[in-house]
Design a binder for these strands. Sequence first.
DNA 1: ACACTAAGTTACATAAAGTAAGTATATATG
DNA 2: CATATATACTTACTTTATGTAACTTAGTGT
Lengths: 112, 112
Amino acid sequence: MDQPQLCPRFEKAMELLSKRWTALIVFQLLSGPQRFARIESSLPNLSGKVLSERLKELEAEGIIQRDVYPETPVRIEYKLTDKGNALAPLFDSISNWSSEWIQLPDKEVHSE
Amino acid sequence: MDQPQLCPRFEKAMELLSKRWTALIVFQLLSGPQRFARIESSLPNLSGKVLSERLKELEAEGIIQRDVYPETPVRIEYKLTDKGNALAPLFDSISNWSSEWIQLPDKEVHSE
DNA sequence: ACACTAAGTTACATAAAGTAAGTATATATG
DNA sequence: CATATATACTTACTTTATGTAACTTAGTGT
């Protein structure tokens, strides 16, 4: 009847990564450092409010770094740390799985 | 200024997997077919209501299969399909990342 | 008839996320 | 000097998602 405990590190990772938007933000940053507005526009349903929360959480976890360039207007860039970049293989796994197993619905053509 | 579109299969996979509890339910089923109450008790903060929703979604996506054994009382088992089992490498990626990068907080000892 | 058990479902309460307007800071314009 | 512009947020408020606990259903046993 007993169930094995999951490894607390794994549990923590799942907690982080399965939080809404977190993984997609990391994925977006895999393509290079970018600014708030760019991340926001890459994820159409993500609100600025939640993006701001997630960026703070990710920074606190050491997954991203926030760089301030005191230009006018100020420029702030977010980029992955080594810890963040180390998540790349995870996205490869998802990519492989999706290309093998996800069927897209046929688009309807010539019907109302 | 343009941003590359993400592959719709990948996007769909992310949508599925980043929904709260979904990945953890799949992970739990990697250890073998199991019944509702067992899955529920393996994920302490997941409510029966949401588990029931997720199981339906996962079945509709072809990731799990629901088997009914008309015993008394009825026994219902959930198990991963091939599509579901194919997610195993994803959890390996997370496991590898977490063991390399996640630091657990020190437990406090001898302090109030 | 009543109780037991598994697998849910329902009504209601709380928490998380979305929306749109507002703030802060620095500079430029008239 | 007042107003305007731009970026990066924050705030007040609304909507959606999730949690909680009680209830339902079906088959059997007492």
